[in-house]
Nucleic acid binder design. Structure first.
Lengths: 106, 106
DNA sequence: ATAGTATATAAGCAAATGATTATATAAGGA
DNA sequence: TCCTTATATAATCATTTGCTTATATACTAT
């Protein structure tokens, strides 16, 4: 694995707020609006953090109406698999629990 | 594993120069002076990067005369074990190869 | 169309980061 | 002792980061 990709993914994961985002997504899809409550930062701040994770190839998104559901990509690098293993899932932040639009496809 | 420790170790590893330092140390002890050649940055810069890795509990040091030999700690966290596995060893930077004082104890 | 909601993007700013040069410390040899 | 060598620390500075507020975009509903 290339050192620059290692660096990119490590940098993306090396932040407490982004670790929490990953912790939320370990249980499945999460909406941006839910992250806002969990992290206690503004909605634009959440969007920007999510973008970093997406640009590092760690998460992906799915649009559902006005909402956007984010989730971990299925094919993680070995590096990210190892890191994600060490992050405790954070419950109660998933679409399934308190999102108005519970993942019905299209 | 605590999120703050995860963050600390990820932050420590999330830098190309520090990844190279770790890559060097995968083969054993390395002197500060050797790192300077490998990274192409100043000696104080190397010292500061090494300190970050040390403060994150990833490496340790041993004094040998005027030299200081750095190496990976033996008991790595699961997180760091996984990360270190993904870093290719970098050869030719170890004390054994070009250091004047080859690791004779005390 | 118009209004409301969810998210993204832009601009601005304070704090953190990673380098530099200069200097301090510690050990070794003349 | 004095000089040299190896490393650490201090001060400084430019760049990056992560937030904020303001605004744009996209979809839904009336």
């Amino acid at each position: 694995m290339e050192n620059t990709l290692i660096e990119k993914q490590l940098k993306a994961a090396a932040d407490l707020n982004r670790i929490k985002l990953l912790a939320c997504m370990k249980n499945g899809e999460v909406c941006v609006c839910d992250f806002v409550d969990v992290l206690g930062i503004s909605q634009p701040a959440v969007s920007q953090q999510l973008r970093k994770l997406k640009e590092a190839g760690i998460i992906t998104e799915r649009k559902v109406g006005t909402w956007k559901h984010y989730r971990l990509v299925e094919e993680q690098t070995s590096l990210m698999k190892g890191i994600l293993e060490q992050i405790e899932p954070l419950n109660g932040c998933n679409c399934g629990s308190d999102c108005t639009n519970i993942g019905e496809e299209n």
